[in-house]
Design a protein around this nucleic acid. Sequence first.
DNA 1: GTCCTGGGTGAGCAAGCGCTTAGGCGAGCG
DNA 2: CGCTCGCCTAAGCGCTTGCTCACCCAGGAC
Lengths: 204, 204
Amino acid sequence: MTAEAATGEAWGDITPDAARRLVIAAVEAFAERGYHATTTRDIAGRAGMSPAALYIHYKTKEELLYQISKVGHHRSLAMLEEARDAGGTAAERLAAAVRVFVRWHAEHHTTGRIVQYELGALAPEHYREIVVLRRRSEDAIRTIIKDGVTDGEFDVPDVSGTTLAVLSLCIDVARWFSPSGRRTPEEVGALYADLVLRMVRQNG
Amino acid sequence: MTAEAATGEAWGDITPDAARRLVIAAVEAFAERGYHATTTRDIAGRAGMSPAALYIHYKTKEELLYQISKVGHHRSLAMLEEARDAGGTAAERLAAAVRVFVRWHAEHHTTGRIVQYELGALAPEHYREIVVLRRRSEDAIRTIIKDGVTDGEFDVPDVSGTTLAVLSLCIDVARWFSPSGRRTPEEVGALYADLVLRMVRQNG
DNA sequence: GTCCTGGGTGAGCAAGCGCTTAGGCGAGCG
DNA sequence: CGCTCGCCTAAGCGCTTGCTCACCCAGGAC
């Protein structure tokens, strides 16, 4: 599956077709140049439409950003909470969470970049809504780590700080990952899951 | 030392006074809202001058960004190469590198944010120059890790990938760190140095 | 006193921005 | 057929942007 096919697939449930093409165009443009450097003319042009057509489907440029950010955050949160609630040891669940979260940030690094780095461009009320989702993501990771400490699997002196570091490590993948690089999303996910386990595990 | 005093201190050698005030204003504005969302009127206003005064000291808004990025990258690189060339075991040198690099990104998180997240706004020739410095930073960390593997101190299956992860972890501090948070730059540096050592060490 | 120079201002230009308006056009339906 | 409705465009409005221009002024050299 190519990166572009993955981008398209992730927004498959948006109708009509023109609205979906606009989101996909916006994701690419925002990820490439940043929200503020992207013009509505650029987005419309990439979607093969006139600038005015954008405003038939979205009220403002910021609403496009909000849709992208909201969908991305919900998907992230779902992955992490699923990993938290799965069966298995804390180590298995933490490894699964990191693997899937990292793989998503690599595969959808365009969306990931918007989700992680364009928060400040959201309207205040949208920002407040998104922050709630982010706190829940953090809670999911913290819970897994806490479980591991309780069960004696993990040796983590600073649970909150380590949670922050784990999340931070995963998130930054969206910044540096390139599909033309040497590593596939799966490989990065596996590598990072291993590194994170080393960070938290008891080592005799 | 307050964060603002630290910001001022870092640019102490720029003259005349107005030029220094402009860089400091630009650092704050770029870090707060991003390069593209910052206007030259905003920068000049923060520095207590008229918009036209900016152009007496800098040819363009991009030149201001370039100066900030260049100084920040040189300082980062100097820290990492110093740690690489210091005495001691690989573990000691890696811990020192991470500690100082993280502390800098926390203390100067405004400059750090520009250094790490506004690369794309640089003019092409400036971008090419900066990328060279970034590669050298990566090399410094990779060398320390390789030394540790050679000496048998470290157990690292994927040296390049782990180098990437270590740098990534440090860099992302600039994104989330807030001086009003619970942790001081020193504390974050110590925590991260410990986590990184856990990632690379032999564990019996 | 006169002149030059470096650092400053107020006003404003050309271009590009987000967004709106007036209108066109084809598919579905009575 | 004629009508509506969803989707689209050409043109452009009002505003902000990065940057420039003509001019000002204090302080040192002669």
